Simulated scan of single mutants.
Amino acid sequence: MVIEFSKYQGLGNDFILIDNRHAAEPIITPEQAIAICDRHFGIGGDGVIFALPGKASTDYSMRIYNSDGSEPEMCGNGIRCLAKFIADLEANTEVNKSYQIDTLAGLIVPKLENNAEVTVDMGEPELSAPKIPTTLAGIEGKVIAQPLEVADRTWLVTTVSMGNPHCITFVEDSVAIALEQIGPLFEHHPVFPQRTNTEFIEVVKPDYIKMRVWERGAGITLACGTGACASVVAGVLNNQCDRLCTVELPGGCLQINWSATDNRVYMTGPASEVFRGQYSL
């Protein structure tokens, strides 16, 4: 079996995009996705994203397999790449063109700002602990600056869902965090029954923060869009940052706006094609 693919990246978070509009389910298996994502023996990527037919009133549907074969509900950088991929498939050059995309996290609406950037309406953040989900006990059902024991250290964590679970903690120096050791311990901590993404945030100033991330199912990545959104929400809840904030990730910067008007989170950042090709399974 030979598949055609396109490789896209958003701030170095790279994905293999597959035109799956002819079928309602992904045309490859999670096991095949693991092989394709291998950076030595495959194409290499943080995940495989499928552009599927839309449902009801939506234009398209999105599915994604992480590099470990797991399936997340959504991916912020990934949906920007998907929007750019769809526009390229349609040969669309219209500025401010938006798409209604069905995801496992619900309806997401990305808008093409120009040839390089996409703004995504990421929806409202979920703060209810059972819906994130986490078994951590918080005040009024929310986990904000609650202690969590990981690796013989007490961390103050805030949990947020942007359609997928995030655990955010604020640190003095994000570079000093040994992600490869501490990340898996957070991801697989028993208080997160569906595992979790974990963000380590260094506040530079109220409108500018630095973030390093351990992604559930992908490990260390150069960027995480939903994580950037969740981190700004957590920053506001902890009086650490403004609602309109630049988030610096190892791969570059995202602009995040948690609107006080409609409670929705808006993410703006780049997405671009790297190359196209064929792959034999």
Rank of each mutant, 00 (worst) to 15 (best):
T169R: 02
P193F: 10
V120K: 00
V171Y: 11
Q181Y: 01
P130T: 04
D262N: 15
E126N: 13
G219N: 13
V175N: 15
D242Q: 14
E187I: 00
M162A: 05
G225E: 01
G141F: 12
D121Q: 05
K142S: 10
N239M: 11
G217I: 11
G252E: 06
L185A: 13
D152M: 07
P130V: 04
C253P: 03
A137M: 11
K142Q: 15
T158K: 09
K142V: 14
I139H: 14
L127Y: 08
Q181S: 12
G123P: 04
N238D: 13
W155R: 05
L127P: 01
D242G: 01
T261I: 14
K142W: 03
T159E: 03
F186R: 00
C167P: 07
A129Q: 05
V157K: 02
G163P: 06
C167S: 13
G138K: 06
R216P: 00
A223Y: 02
I144L: 10
T221S: 12
C241D: 12
T154C: 10
D152T: 03
V203E: 12
T159V: 08
I201R: 10
G251Q: 06
Q181C: 00
D121A: 10
G219A: 11
E149D: 14
I209W: 01
A137C: 09
N238C: 15
M162L: 04
E140L: 13
K210W: 01
L254N: 09
T135D: 13
F186Q: 00
E126V: 15
E202F: 09
E124S: 14
W155G: 03
V150A: 08
